[in-house]
Design a protein around this nucleic acid. Structure first.
Lengths: 307, 307
DNA sequence: GCGCGGCTTTGCGGTGCTCGAAAAGGCGCG
DNA sequence: CGCGCCTTTTCGAGCACCGCAAAGCCGCGC
């Protein structure tokens, strides 16, 4: 038994009471319906409908088939309809992952708002700076720094995220602040463990477009960007951080930018999701919601713990 | 969603964990399976399996589909398997109809025996001399007098059933017994209402093959052959009865055969069932059972009420 | 860095299925 | 006996589905 349609036609015929009646209901030719029934009987090896010019009758096998299959088919259709409706009706569990900094401060509030707009959607927000595999991990939308290489994914840039080299005054005290990228070699650099590979290759661009690659080194490595910030604040070393992430600390002088004439490449925020087609409504809703609230994402960070 | 196979493949893929694994289980090429999944997603409009070179993951819609469909499909398969098994395993309700005389005396005992042989078969024996429509009425096997005209039915002759004209001594007292078919016109004839049409055309054949048609008349008509017999026994008229039916009465002299040199055409017993193909095992079992016990059917009748 | 192997997808051609229209057959009714 | 209603059969066109083979993608190991 390969086709649902066979059983479906059978059920319809039983309900209609004749092939020609069912033909109207189903929009199939009578000839087709006759062949459907015949095929069922061939496959089962048992007559289910005794039919001749005078009318139809269910055999007891047909009766047995009918009562079992009728409810099962309608349940099956309901199940299919439910899933199919997810294309148009936002509902179900939406899994969002985000980097920690942005997540805690910007995404989380937006998520709670989104959740109010779509009460049938349960948002599951997971924060972390480690690499997120959209396939293996269970994520519908990921907000990440930098676009993934995976070509099957769609990455939309949410906002620019310029970076800078910085350190705390405490660290700089008694040290000679670097004036040139190559000076970094003599400093304790705080290294981000990003996507499993250490970010110890810093690229800096001078005012004239010259590229300077430095392989930095240090004894502290973390995959958590907030920890990196903490370390920098406590004077453990020189960090390459996004300005957005440390704006308030720069303002308050808790961190100072080093070598302002050398720009680190932007590590922009991206919204990543799997393909443009076949997205469920919940995901599309979230994506457009995020795009519509882009402005609120861009406001400088304020640590909620201290606020 | 037209094909059960689509969903079935989907479930298998989820269980197997990869297309290639499922390919082994199902005996389909990987390419085919890939197209199955794609087709499901196109039909539903929602991605159910995120898949790339690194592995598979159910989306939450896929998860919803899987949990719903898995059990439904197995139930559906069970239902189909149950009905399909009826081809080989005798079980279920078997509806048998029979003429009253033979039914009470011969078929009923055989039915009870049959029922012991096949405990999973419930036999529903319905007795009556009225016409049985194999299609509209709910009958698997009919034992009838004479073969039906319906060409879609199979009629197997069970045994010969010679007939004779008879009356009781009480009726004949003071009357002149008929010596020739045309004499019947002057007698009260008991008429059988057979299949809705009155059997008032009696055909008799003389020793030399000559055919004599007589339209008889009388005031008593019944569709019940036993009632006809009772009437004849009570002397209400002349009856055309099967010898088999009245053997004991002839033996005891309660009825006497009239015009023994004129033979009425045989009204043989037939076993009628719907087609040779697609018969469920229960019906085939009953048919062969009846054929194997033909000899016991042929023994002369003994009214169980009087025995 | 580069090829290898495993995974999925895509393109292709042939087979077989499924469709509707039309013809055929059965049956009841007038 | 023809008419109307029902189902089945036949037939040709079109499409769906299959497996094969090639391609794309990724991670691993040399």
């Amino acid at each position: 038994m390969k086709r649902i349609a066979d059983l479906s036609v059978f059920v319809s015929v039983v309900k209609a009471g004749s092939l020609s009646e069912a033909s109207n209901d189903l929009g199939l030719s009578v000839a087709s319906i006759s062949k459907y029934i015949s095929r069922i009987e061939q496959e089962l090896g048992v007559r289910v409908l005794v039919r001749n010019a005078r009318g139809l009758r269910l055999t007891s096998e047909g009766q047995a088939l009918y009562v079992r299959v009728d409810t099962l088919l309608s349940q099956l259709n309901k199940a299919i309809a439910y899933v199919s409706a997810c294309r148009d009706i936002p509902r179900g569990v939406l899994k969002v992952s985000s980097t920690i900094g942005l997540g805690r401060n910007r995404i989380a509030p937006l998520v709670s708002e989104f959740s109010k707009l779509y009460p049938d959607v349960t948002v599951q927000l997971s924060l972390g700076d480690r690499y997120v595999d959209m396939v293996l991990d269970d994520v519908d939308v990921a907000i990440s720094i930098g676009a993934p290489e995976d070509t099957s994914l769609v990455a939309k840039r949410l906002m620019s995220n310029p970076c800078c080299v910085c350190a705390s005054p405490a660290y700089l005290k008694g040290r000679k602040a670097p004036r040139h990228p190559k000076d970094l070699k003599r400093h304790d650099c705080l290294i981000l463990d990003c996507h499993g590979s250490f970010k110890d290759q810093w690229r800096l661009e001078d005012e004239y477009g010259g590229q300077h690659h430095v392989k930095v080194s240090g004894n502290l490595i973390t995959d958590n960007s907030e920890t990196l910030r903490e370390w920098a604040l406590k004077g453990y070393g020189v960090a390459l951080k996004s300005r957005w992430d440390i704006a308030e600390h720069l303002d308050r002088g808790e961190l100072v930018q080093l070598m302002p004439r050398y720009r680190a490449p932007d590590l922009d925020f991206y919204m990543v999701y799997a393909g443009r087609d076949l997205l469920p409504a919940k995901t599309r809703a979230f994506i457009t919601f995020l795009e519509e609230n882009l402005e609120r994402l861009k406001q400088p960070i304020t640590d909620p713990v201290k606020a």
